[in-house]
Measured scan of single mutants.
Amino acid sequence: EVTIKANLIFANGSTQTAEFKGTFEKATSEAYAYADTLKKDNGEYTVDVADKGYTLNIKFAG
């Protein structure tokens, strides 16, 4: 089991951190699915992958 950390960075400057656990593939998939649910209210997003994929910096356009 691994932990994927998602740093969520919103257009208004606020930030939030979420963690997803499971296999690497499952946790990564859940992180992207979570970002997709936030897209409606926060706009499109870009992802900067860090720490060999264990950290995702997800920035929303607003």
Rank of each mutant, 00 (worst) to 15 (best):
E1L: 12
V2W: 07
V2M: 07
V2K: 05
V2F: 06
T3V: 12
T3W: 08
I4R: 01
I4S: 00
I4H: 00
I4T: 01
K5Q: 09
K5N: 09
K5W: 10
K5V: 11
K5P: 01
A6Y: 02
A6D: 01
L8D: 00
L8G: 01
I9T: 07
I9C: 04
I9H: 12
I9N: 15
F10C: 03
F10M: 13
F10D: 02
F10K: 04
F10V: 04
N12S: 04
G13K: 12
G13V: 07
G13P: 01
G13N: 15
S14I: 10
S14Q: 11
S14F: 11
T15C: 03
T15P: 05
T15K: 14
T15H: 11
T15L: 15
Q16F: 10
Q16C: 04
Q16G: 13
T17S: 05
T17M: 12
T17Y: 07
T17Q: 15
A18G: 10
E19D: 06
E19F: 14
E19W: 10
F20I: 03
K21Y: 10
G22K: 01
G22F: 02
T23N: 07
T23A: 09
F24G: 04
E25V: 13
E25L: 05
K26C: 04
K26H: 11
K26M: 11
K26L: 09
K26V: 08
A27L: 01
A27D: 01
A27N: 01
T28A: 06
T28I: 15
T28N: 06
E30T: 13
E30M: 05
A31D: 00
A31T: 07
A31S: 04
A31V: 10
Y32P: 00
Y32G: 02
Y32F: 13
Y32V: 07
Y32C: 03
A33M: 14
Y34T: 05
A35L: 11
A35Q: 00
D36M: 08
T37H: 07
T37A: 12
L38I: 04
L38T: 02
K39T: 14
K39M: 14
K39R: 13
G43M: 13
G43D: 03
E44A: 06
E44V: 12
E44I: 11
E44P: 12
Y45F: 09
Y45I: 03
Y45T: 02
Y45W: 13
T46F: 13
V47W: 11
V47D: 02
D48C: 06
D48N: 13
V49M: 08
V49C: 04
A50T: 06
A50I: 12
A50M: 08
K52H: 09
K52D: 07
K52C: 04
G53W: 03
G53K: 04
T55Q: 05
T55F: 08
T55E: 11
L56R: 01
N57T: 07
N57F: 05
N57E: 09
N57Y: 12
N57S: 13
I58S: 00
I58D: 00
I58W: 01
K59G: 09
K59D: 05
K59T: 14
F60C: 00
F60G: 00
F60V: 01
F60R: 00
F60P: 00
F60K: 00
A61G: 05
G62A: 13
G62N: 09
G62R: 07
